[in-house]
Design a protein around this nucleic acid. Structure first.
Lengths: 341, 341
DNA sequence: ATATTTTCTCAAATCGATTTCAATTTTGGC
DNA sequence: GCCAAAATTGAAATCGATTTGAGAAAATAT
C-alpha cells in the first residue's frame, strides 16, 4: 500500500495524508483523525527508505562491537533497546574484525561516511582516542560511553571509576588491609586508568606503598581472575584483599582462594565491580560479594536517550554525565587476619 | 558528493558511473577502472537510502532482542559478526519491549513490512510458532535458530538438544544415579521441550520412573539454579545428580550443594549445557564441569552464512542443519554414593 | 565501401515518500 | 451580505540513486 494509493482511497491528496500522519498543524483534527484511523485499518505505513531518503535521517544508531566483554556489550544494548523501543530508531551493530588501531580508525571512518547511521556510540575510549577526533572532524554525531582526555570536545557519559575504586580500596584499608591486590581491566582504556588512579591514590593517601607485584591487567574473564589471584596468593607475602574489575574476575578469585584453602571474607577479602547482570548477582555469590555497583543497562538506556537529544539538536558540548557508583558491603569483606607466613 | 556531480566531473553520465560501480558488464574495463579509482579519490559513495529505496535491498539482517538470556544473544551476534564482516551486510537489533504474544507478532509484522531488513533470524522458536507462519506468509526471508514443528516449511539450524540431554542423562544412569534432577529452560520453547524429551526417554529406556518433583523450568540464571537445586536437595529423597540447561544454572547448583555441605562430583553429580563463553569456561570451574557442549558463536557464524545463501537464492526448504552436541566429562560427575537418609 | 554486430553511453522514468508554494474553502468582523 | 483573514487542501518539485530502452561509436563481416 503506497501513499498515493492510500490517499486516493481516502479521497485526499498525498500531501494532506502525509501531513496528517506526521502531525503537521495545517490539517484539521477531523481529517487527521480519519486519516490515522484509516491508516490503521488499511494497514498503510510509510516506506522507511523513502522517508529516510527524503528527510536525510537514517533512523539508526551505530555501535561497534569489539571482541572483548560481550557480556557488558549485551547488557548495554539491552538498555539502549529499552529506550529506543518507543522511537523509530534501530541499533546497528558493526562488527570489528581487526582490533588493530589503523583498521579500527578505518572502520569508524567508513561507518561515519556511509550514512548508514545517524549517530555513533564510542565504547571503551582511550585517554587520547583518535576515534573521537575523527568523528568530530567528520561532523558525525557521537556519544562516548566513558571518557577521554583528548582535547576535542565530546559528549560523554561515564561512571566514577576513580572514586569507586578509591572508596573500595579505602574501605579495605579501614579494615586493616595493607597488601591489597588490584586486578584491573586491559591497559589502554581510560576506565582502567581511572581505576588505577583511584587505587593508587587511596593507598598513597594512607601512606601505603604501591607494590607493582600486586597489580594485574587483563580481560574480564573467570580464567584470568583465577590465574592472577592464584599467582598473587602464592607469593610469600600474599595479599589479604583484592579489588577486581568484574564479576567474572571475582568468580576466578573465589576459585583461586578456595583452591588454596583460603576462606573468602575471612582469609581474603574481595571487592569487585558489579555491572549488574540479571543472570549473575553479587548478592547470590557464596559468600555474597561486596561490590562497587553501577548498572550497565541503565547506562545503555541513558546513552540512547542522550543520543536522541543530540540528534534533536542539543549541543554536544554540554553533555557530560558522571555517574556515582555505589559501594555495597556484603560478606566477602572483613577485617584483616594476618596470614601465618 | 552526489552521483550527478561526480559523473559530471568524470565527463560521464550517471548511468555509466552507476553501472561501473555496481559491476555491470556493459561498461568497458578501462572506464570502470577509472571510475572506481576516481570514486575513491574524490570520496564518492552512493547514498545508502537512495539505493535502498530504488533497489529494495537493505543490506541488513534483523534479529529481535528479547529480554532473557542476553549472554547467549551476545555470543550469537558475535558469531554472526564474524561472518558478516567481509560482506556489506549489517546486523540490525530490534528491541522487543513487550514479551506478550500479540505484541510480539505485531513487532515481527512491522519489521517484515518495514523493509528495514533483508532477512530475519528467529530465536527460541516454540513448537507451534506463529512468527514462522507469519514470515512465511509475508514472503520475508528468514532463518530459524532452533526448530518448530509448525507445518510451514522453514529453514533452520538447531543443535541436537534431545540427543545431548539423553546422552547426559544416560551417562549419569550408567554411573548408578537414579534420582536425577533436571533444571531446564523456560517452558514453551522447542529446545526446552526437546531437552525434556531427551531426559524422559533416557530414564524410561532404563526403567526409571520420572519424578515430576525433580523437574524445574526457568530462566538461565545463577539465582534460579541455586533456588531449584537447594529445594531439590532439601527433599527427603534428594537427587544425586543434576542435568542443567546452562553454565549459569550450574554455578547456582554448585553454590547450593556447597551451602549444604555436599561435594560436587562426589555427593552430587552435575552435567550442564555449555554454550562456550570466552569469559566463563566449564574447564575452569571448581571442580571442573562435565558438560554437553555446542558453540553459540559458531551457530551465529553459520546462521549468518545460511542467511546470505538464502538471500543469494538458495531454496529455504532445503536448509535444515542439526548439529551434534559433544558430551565432555570432567570432575563434576562421579559414581553415585547413596545419601545417608 | 557498406552492412551487421558488438560495445559503450545516455536521457528519462522510477522507487515512495516530504514539502514548497499556490489555490481554494471557511470563518469572522462589520 | 461582503471582504479580509485564517484554515485547509493539492499540484508539482525534490531527495539520490538504478535501470529501461534506445542511440552513437567502434569493430567485424561481406
Amino acid at each position: 500500500m503506497k501513499l498515493k494509493e492510500f490517499a486516493k482511497q481516502l479521497g485526499l491528496s498525498p500531501t494532506t495524508v502525509s501531513r496528517a500522519l506526521s502531525g503537521y498543524p495545517e490539517v484539521s483534527e477531523v481529517t487527521r483523525a480519519r486519516v490515522v484511523q484509516e491508516a490503521v485499518r488499511l494497514g498503510y505505513r510509510p516506506n522507511v527508505n523513502a522517508v529516510r531518503l527524503k528527510t536525510g535521517r537514517v533512523g539508526a544508531i551505530g555501535v561497534v562491537m569489539g571482541r572483548a566483554s560481550e557480556f557488558h556489550f549485551a547488557e548495554f544494548m539491552a538498555g539502549m533497546a529499552e529506550r529506543l523501543i518507543t522511537e523509530d530508531t534501530d541499533i546497528l551493530v558493526i562488527p570489528m574484525a581487526n582490533p588493530e588501531y589503523d583498521a579500527e580508525m578505518q572502520l569508524y571512518r567508513r561507518l561515519a561516511e556511509s550514512q548508514r547511521v545517524d549517530a555513533i556510540i564510542v565504547h571503551s575510549p582511550r585517554p587520547n582516542d583518535q576515534r573521537i577526533a575523527l568523528l568530530h572532524e567528520l561532523g558525525m554525531p557521537f556519544l562516548v560511553h566513558g571518557r577521554s582526555d583528548i582535547d576535542v570536545p565530546h559528549p560523554w557519559l561515564d561512571i566514577d571509576n576513580e572514586g569507586a575504586v578509591r572508596r573500595a580500596t579505602s574501605h579495605l584499608i579501614d579494615l586493616g588491609h595493607t597488601r591489597i591486590a588490584m586486578i584491573n581491566g586491559r591497559e589502554g582504556a581510560t576506565y582502567a586508568l581511572h581505576r588505577d588512579i583511584g587505587y593508587r591514590s587511596a593507598l598513597q593517601s594512607r601512606g601505603i606503598e604501591v607494590d607493582p607485584q600486586l597489580i594485574a591487567n587483563g580481560n574480564f574473564t573467570d580464567e584470568l581472575g583465577f590465574r592472577f589471584a592464584r599467582s598473587f596468593l602464592e607469593q610469600p607475602k600474599r595479599p589479604t584483599a583484592f579489588v577486581a574489575g568484574s564479576m567474572m574476575t571475582a568468580l576466578g578469585i573465589y576459585r583461586a582462594a578456595r583452591s588454596l584453602g583460603l576462606q573468602i571474607g575471612r582469609d581474603v577479602s574481595v571487592i569487585a565491580h558489579d555491572d549488574v547482570f540479571p543472570y549473575l548477582t553479587a548478592d547470590n555469590m557464596a559468600p555474597s560479594l561486596s561490590a562497587t555497583r553501577s548498572s550497565m543497562r541503565a547506562a545503555g538506556t541513558r546513552c540512547a536517550d542522550l543520543v536522541l537529544q543530540l540528534l534533536a539538536g542539543r549541543s554536544p558540548t554540554e553533555i557530560h554525565e558522571l555517574w556515582p557508583v555505589e559501594l555495597i558491603l556484603r560478606e566477602s569483606t572483613g577485617p584483616v587476619r594476618m596470614p601465618q607466613t
